[in-house]
Nucleic acid binder design. Structure first.
Length: 304
DNA sequence: CACCAGGGTACCT
DNA sequence: AGGTACCATGGT
């Protein structure tokens, strides 16, 4: 199957810290392999769009069009961004970056595991979790084994030590407690689809290990609430350095700026700022930290 | 080694 | 209301 689409940078989209299960088959312009629901999926960037292949035969591809947001009008979104220097730079630098539309439970669980973790580590934790507690999937010969994301019911049945065994550390009790609440029916994730952004956010932050940032990630990446604007350390850095180079606003002012300045697709703008800062600017704009004063005559030891 | 990572929470003024 | 230590683990 080939989805005809332009301005879709698969590599940028799949590595931009919104989904954590995509791996390149080989270096360079190799295909991407991942899992969506109970499908093993291989995606390849082509000049005319995106080629897709699945582990089992598929006749109706609507679920994958939806996940990839093939029919989304990217130009309209980009035009809705504020016309300022930082956004122009980010859009130029991240041409073809998209937002996916993921499943709420996987997205929620993934971001509970994301707190103060680097993206590569989040990927590793989730891979372990899926290997150990996810349903094995049908994979074409010659490809690595693949597993569905474990259900909330399955994780709710885990012991905390089993989850800690997946290297998630202090996040284990949060994931476990949230899995148990959802399994018990305390919250129905599907019911949030028809709520307002504020209502859905209020429901999500009731869950253990879910604060404003993680809630906004789920609102944006799973439900498509375009006004959700996750502020993590990178976005904070981007806003401070690109918009407030002199005086940094306090958290309340910064939140107000985030919620008013970026327009109706603020969440999309946020993803451009995040990816731009993380991949293009990196540490080059970070303020050099004060070097620790050395005690006179004592050299810091380099060896460990 | 020192610092940091797509934070949240409990506990302090 | 607004700051801070702590949580566990691995990358850079």
């Amino acid at each position: 199957m080939v989805f005809a689409v332009r301005d879709y940078d698969l590599a940028a989209t799949l590595t931009s810290g919104q989904a954590f299960r995509w791996r390149r088959e080989r270096l360079g312009d190799g295909a991407w392999e991942g899992v969506i629901s109970e499908h093993w999926v291989q995606l390849t960037q082509r000049g005319d769009g995106i080629a897709a292949r699945t582990g089992t035969p598929v006749t109706d591809w609507a679920w994958l069009r939806h996940y990839l947001q093939i029919d989304m009008d990217l130009d309209a979104v980009l035009l809705s961004f504020p016309d300022d220097g930082p956004m122009r730079e980010a859009v130029l630098a991240c041409r073809g970056l998209r937002l996916l539309r993921q499943e709420p439970w996987e997205c929620l669980a993934s971001f509970i595991l994301s707190s103060t973790k680097q993206i590569v580590q989040i990927q590793q934790i989730i891979a372990l979790l899926c290997e150990r507690f996810g349903k094995p999937l049908i994979v074409p010969p010659g490809h690595a084994a693949a597993f569905a994301f474990p259900t909330a019911e399955r994780l709710a049945a885990c012991a905390e030590t089993e989850l800690r065994g997946c290297k998630m550390g202090f996040r284990a009790p949060n994931l476990l407690a949230t899995a148990k609440l959802l399994t018990a029916g305390e919250l129905n994730l599907e019911s949030l689809r028809t709520r307002t952004t504020a209502e859905a956010r209020a429901a999500l932050v009731e869950l253990p290990g879910v604060g404003p940032k993680i809630a906004d990630c789920v609102l944006l990446f799973a439900y498509g609430f375009q006004d959700a604007f996750p502020v993590d350390v990178w976005v904070l850095k981007a806003i401070n350095q690109l918009y407030f180079p002199k005086r940094r606003p306090n958290p309340r002012k910064l939140r107000e700026f985030a919620d008013t300045h970026f327009g109706s697709n603020a969440g999309y703008a946020q993803q451009y700022l995040f990816h731009y800062m993380r991949t293009k600017l990196g540490r080059t704009l970070t303020v050099p930290r004060q070097p620790k004063r050395q005690l006179s005559g004592v050299k810091r030891r380099r060896a460990k």
